[in-house]
């Protein structure tokens, strides 16, 4: 049962991921990206990482993608308004993406040497265990990350503030 779900979710994630870049209409692209995020959230659930599942849906599918939709809807992109990129830019993009692919392939090449994944992945993903690990074992990185978020928040507020002269 789980293995079929895994294949279904993977298929969905890859298909909608491809549709994100193949679709001409930017709104449709964003909606396909939302489907991709849901498929990935499903994978988290299969791995018994319930907290990650909830956060993936809440933060990525719920908040960030809605903001994306917001911006795209307000920009009202269409064919005439689409900025034309010159050939040098396209060439650079292809090279950059090709290099990224190389990195991915190199990273995946080593996976065959890894031990086979265990059938049950344990319950480290449950909120209780995750919280204990985060606040005991990884307290310093966790707090540092939260400081980073605070700095980003202050920065966003400063940028959003109008000049009062």
């Amino acid at each position: 049962m789980t293995i079929y779900l895994f294949y279904f979710l993977s298929f969905l994630a890859i298909l909608s991921g491809l549709m994100v870049i193949l679709e001409k209409n930017p709104i449709h692209s964003v909606l396909y990206l939302v489907i991709t995020f849901f498929a990935i959230a499903g994978h988290y659930l299969l791995l018994n990482a319930q907290f990650l599942f909830a956060v993936q849906i809440m933060v990525y599918a719920g908040a960030i993608m809605v903001l994306f939709l917001f911006v795209i809807m307000l920009l009202n992109l269409n064919k005439e308004a689409e900025p034309h990129k010159n050939n040098a830019m396209k060439f650079a993009a292809v090279i950059a993406a090709g290099l990224l692919l190389l990195v991915f392939v190199a990273a995946l090449k080593g996976t065959s040497e890894l031990p086979a994944p265990q059938e049950s992945v344990g319950d480290i993903g449950l909120v209780k265990n995750l919280g204990k690990v985060l606040f005991k074992q990884f307290l310093l990185p966790f707090e540092t990350a939260s400081l980073l978020f605070l700095a980003a928040m202050v920065g966003a507020v400063m940028l959003g503030k109008r000049d009062t002269k």
Binding site: L31, V34, Q50, F51, F53, A54, V55, I57, M58, A61, G62, A63, V66, L69, M73, L126, V127
Partner: peptide, 22 residues
């Protein structure tokens, strides 16, 4: 009775925006 019940609620609420937006 999932043990992330409240997170599930918040998640569904945040997805609820899509109906109106789309």
């Amino acid at each position: 009775d999932v043990n992330i019940g409240i997170l599930y609620l918040l998640g569904v609420t945040s997805v609820g925006v899509y109906g109106i937006m789309i």
